[in-house]
Write a protein that binds this DNA or RNA. Structure first.
Length: 932
RNA sequence: GCGAGGGUUGCCAAGCCUGGUCAACGGCGCAGGGCUUAGGACCCUGUCUCAAGGAGUCCAUGGGUUCGAAUCCCAUCCCUCGCACCA
């Protein structure tokens, strides 16, 4: 049968056969298998990195479906959140970068792009694109269950979920620092920033120095150095404000006033004082009561902290230089740095040392930042406080920092002051962004020890792939604290008890896997009727369905469908979600659902690279999935992504590696379509069938363990290499025997989860009327496994290799090859060595056993050789050989084959019947070979 | 810095848990041969060094345990991911 292979035509044809094929409904007494994937946020087109995330679960779904399970694989779209709002705004403003991305990279048609000023148009467009590409890839998704997270029914579901959590007291109100633009009067996310998106919110400690009736606060990240303060710095060129902060009189910079106000402090301006006026005066050290002078420094930035700085010249290079400069002018010469921290590889005054070693001439030297960082890091990681630190002496810097902070907050009125880590953090509107404390923010209280404890107890029940990630989950559970679960802007569901807030996107997608089970049916119900009690009945079985606003039959149907599918069996997601989403969903399942409905397992994916580089839409380093499918075909893309790495490993899409994969599929196509002409039988048939059983087992085990790459290697490369040896061993004019019909039928099915289109077509081409997608998975038949046949082929394979190795080395023109087979007593030695557990007495056992005439040969040497040989063979093979092997008949039967392979005459001789000295080299499973 | 994972022969990548089956699976690339008008594809062979089927050196670096280590232990260096209001 000669048939041209055009992948795209086949794929289109097959997609028609699959319409509505993968829409499972509950079937009584049929075992279900429910898998799901973290749903996409459709703000752009899919690239090949996304491909694997959805292809691997599909491969697994297809495998279990062929195993006879009722498999549910649903998909939905997560459109909650703020990023699309930003995108829509940028498109409305005709931002060139954004337009370029969407027009040129994502190929969005102009008229659609024009409508992208509406964020819902964006998510709808890309949701449809996602579905289109997923269908092209042949994903066996039940599309009836598709939904988005802003449909009214889903919002009702979120309200139901949170009302329960709220009632349990796990949603609490608190305050939280966020980036905020005073001009827009809104929180700013990364995507809203014009500049400074790498800036973090830093938490400074405000140390207050009494100054007459005032206090002068200084902001520091290193409160433990308070003991080494020698002076304060004030900028003599600016004017400070006298203010009243929460009833206390402070002196701070103008810039600090607004920041304090945004951090919930009441600030009243009462006067001014120039920096120059402050210089020369002194404050009181809050701890020691010592007098601390205020010195002038032009480097003090009114925009950072309070606009006044405490100086620790022994440990802060900048402070040291500033002081040195003044002292070189003969001023303040009585001030000496106070060393506080002992650091390995540094002397007593590290700041001085590092500045002098690097010959820093003045404060503005560009190296200053790096040096400061170097010293701070060294002190933080390895520093120990010395005897100048009072009660804190002997503590690590890390420890002392926490302790001193607590101490100062309790006894000296210190407060936490939040500020950005970079000076310029600019909102899209052009204004400076500050830190604002939201005081009515809602939090999920993951810090609740009872809740945490429940998750810790449950985690061992959850199957995790790969197992190494378990420790990361454990750590995440410990590390999670209150999570702000609401925000002001974006798409999403309103908080029922506080409607000015919306649920934040990570918080509204924690138990949606349960919603899939009823998603296709709940759309029939008017959202107004979806009360708390309705969901209570569907998901918890609570209440009387006769008294609810939805009719009883529908309710019972939804309830039973949910119970049929739930709990889910496996959830797939990328590894970067362990520290939030994947752990959150454990918390939420635990607190909503009973024991028997908790998540059963998770598979965590590695990251995606493109030609060795990180994939990034903004940098243009992406390859769109749709383009890949059009260029190479869906099956090629699938097989490449499955074959390049196991799911949990990082994978790299390398352009040059893709075409060879397509050729492999074409090769399979050819082999399968050539097979019907095979006829007759051959002695090698039994071997091929035996090997096939092992391949079936290996593939089955690999798929069961989510080792899709290994499964592919066994299913493809394994079968191909078996077929290669089989063809080599066929009689001269045979191109295949009827055994191929069986092999081909199995092979198609083993490959079906990975390349479903090609195999579906091949399945029907080879005369089947059902879909291979639902064909029974092959089962290995142990009665078809023949150890003896496999060993004899192994012996031939090794011998052929050895003959060829020798032919290559030998200088003479060979005429013939003689094989000398090891005598019976050597086989006896082999068995003894292989089965004797006490390795030290092997020689004794052998000498006692082997009969006398053998002893004029070098028995000891043979034992050594045999031991070496045994070490170099797989243990199963060794045991099989030890059990007995008839080499003479194996080689006799394969004489023609050996002659064909070597193109030489072959003679097979028992070593003991020949005087040839080389014959003594013969070992079991390793005949002596003489070429002449 | 903290937490998790990882560094294998030109490249990608198995093996490591359960030490000898490891010169180390498989794929890619490269070289030679076959096939072909030619190219591609396909098939065979080779791809650390020396060599009658063997030997030597090798699995980030440096030590250690062991009869024996890519595999176990210790130290060091390097890479990736996460560190929160964001999908």
């Amino acid at each position: 049968m000669e048939k041209e292979f055009i992948m795209s035509n086949i794929e289109q044809e097959i997609h028609k056969m699959w319409i509505s094929a993968f829409e499972p409904n509950p079937v009584k007494n049929k075992e279900k298998y429910y898998i799901n994937v973290a749903f996409p946020y459709p703000s752009g087109a899919m690239h090949v990195g996304h491909g694997r995330t959805y292809i691997v679960p599909d491969v697994i779904a297809r495998f279990w479906r062929m195993q006879g399970k009722n498999v549910l694989f649903p998909m939905a779209f997560h459109v909650t959140g703020a990023p699309v709002l930003g995108i829509a705004k940028r498109i409305a403003k005709k931002d060139e970068n954004t337009l370029k991305l969407y027009r040129d990279l994502y190929h969005v048609p102009q008229e659609t792009l024009d409508a992208f000023t509406d964020s819902t148009v964006i998510v709808n467009y890309f949701s449809n694109e996602y579905e289109h590409v997923m269908k092209q890839l042949g994903l066996s998704i039940d599309w009836r269950r598709r939904f988005t997270t802003i449909v009214p029914q889903y919002s009702k579901f979120i309200e139901w979920q949170y009302s329960h959590i709220y009632d349990q007291g796990k949603v609490v109100k608190g305050e939280y620092p966020i980036r905020y633009c005073p001009n827009c009067d809104q929180p700013v996310g990364d995507h809203d920033l014009l500049e400074g998106d790498s800036a973090e919110i830093m938490h400074f400690v405000l140390v207050k120095y009494p100054f007459g009736e005032f206090v002068i606060p200084t902001a520091t990240l290193r409160p433990e150095t308070i003991f080494g303060v020698t002076n304060l710095w004030a900028n003599p060129n600016i004017t400070y404000l006298k203010v009243e902060v929460d009833g206390e009189k402070w002196i701070i910079s103008t810039e600090a006033v607004e920041k304090l106000r945004m951090q919930r402090h009441i600030v009243i301006e009462i006067g001014t004082i120039s920096g120059a006026e402050l210089v020369g005066k002194a404050v009181t050290h809050p701890n020691t009561g010592a007098s601390v002078p205020i010195l002038p420094a032009s480097f003090v930035d009114p925009n950072i902290g309070s606009g006044l700085v405490m100086s620790v010249p022994a440990h802060a290079p900048l402070d040291y230089i500033a002081l040195r400069d003044l002292q070189q002018q003969g001023k303040y010469t009585d001030i000496v740095p106070i060393p506080l921290v002992k650091v390995p590889n540094f002397g007593a005054i590290p700041a001085q040392e590092i500045v002098e070693k690097n010959k820093i001439p003045h404060q503005d030297d560009p190296k200053m930042n790096d040096l400061t960082q170097e010293l701070y890091t060294a002190e933080f990681s390895k520093g120990i406080l010395n005897e100048n630190c009072g009660d804190h002496a002997g503590k690590s810097v890390r420890q002392a920092r926490t302790d001193v902070t607590c101490e100062f907050m309790e006894t000296h009125g210190s407060i936490i002051f939040h500020d950005m880590s970079e000076k310029r953090v600019i909102c899209r509107c052009g204004n400076q962004v500050h830190v604002k404390i939201l005081d009515d923010q809602w939090f999920l209280n993951y810090a609740d020890p009872t809740w945490k404890d429940q998750i810790h107890k449950q985690l061992p029940e959850v199957a995790l792939v790969p197992p190494e990630i378990r420790t990361e989950f454990t750590r995440t559970i410990n590390w999670l604290k209150e999570w702000p679960c609401t925000r002001r802007v974006g798409l999403g569901t309103r908080v029922p008890w506080d409607p000015k807030w919306l649920f934040e996107p990570l918080s509204d997608s924690t138990i949606y896997m349960s919603y899939y089970t009823i998603a296709h049916k709940i759309t029939r119900i008017d959202a107004e009727k979806l009360t708390q009690a309705v969901f209570d009945y569907i998901f918890l079985g609570i209440g009387d369905y006769n008294t609810l606003p939805v009719d009883a039959d529908t309710l019972k149907e939804l309830r039973s469908e949910f119970l049929y599918w739930y709990p889910y069996d496996y959830r797939f997601s990328a590894k970067d979600l362990i520290s939030n989403h994947l752990t959150f969903q454990l918390f939420h399942h635990r607190t909503i659902f009973p024991d028997e409905l908790q998540p059963r397992g998770m598979v965590v994916f590695g990251m995606a690279l493109l030609n060795g580089m990180k994939m990034s839409s903004s940098k243009g380093n992406v390859f769109l999935l749709e383009d890949a499918v059009n260029e190479f075909g869906a099956d090629t893309v699938r097989m490449f992504l499955v074959g390049s790495a196991e799911p949990w490993q990082d994978f790299d899409w390398r352009d040059e590696l893709v075409p060879p994969v397509k050729r492999q599929i074409e090769r399979m196509w050819q082999v399968v379509l050539d097979s019907p002409s095979a006829n007759g039988s051959a002695s090698i048939d039994a071997w091929l069938i035996s090997r096939l059983q092992r391949r079936i087992d290996a593939v089955t085990i690999a798929f069961s363990a989510f080792q899709t790459r290994k499964a592919l290697q066994e299913a493809y490369n394994g079968v191909v290499s078996d077929l290669a040896w089989y063809h080599r061993r066929l009689p001269k004019n045979s191109s295949g025997t009827t055994v191929l019909h069986e092999v081909i039928s199995v092979w198609i099915r083993l490959m079906a989860p990975i390349i479903p289109h090609t195999t579906e077509k091949l399945w029907s081409e080879t005369g089947h009327t059902n879909l291979v997608s639902f064909a029974p998975w092959p089962v290995a038949d142990p009665t078809k496994v023949s150890e003896a046949v496999e060993i004899s082929e192994e012996l031939l394979k090794r011998t052929v290799e050895d003959i060829q190795a020798i032919l290559k080395l030998v200088k003479i023109k060979a005429r013939m090859v003689t094989l000398f087979l090891a005598p019976a007593w050597k086989h006896r030695v082999f068995t003894i060595v292989a089965t004797t557990k006490d390795k030290h007495n092997v020689m004794k056992t052998v000498m006692a056993d082997v009969d006398v005439h053998a002893k004029d040969e070098d028995v000891a040497n043979i034992v050594v050789q045999t031991t070496k040989l045994i070490h170099s063979l797989p243990p199963e093979l060794v045991m099989a050989i030890a059990a007995g092997i008839d080499e003479f008949s194996i080689f006799s039967a394969a004489k023609t084959f050996l002659e064909k392979e070597s193109n030489l005459a072959i003679e097979i001789v028992a070593a003991e019947s020949s005087p040839h000295p080389k014959g003594r080299m013969a070992l079991p499973f390793k005949p002596a070979i003489v070429v002449e």
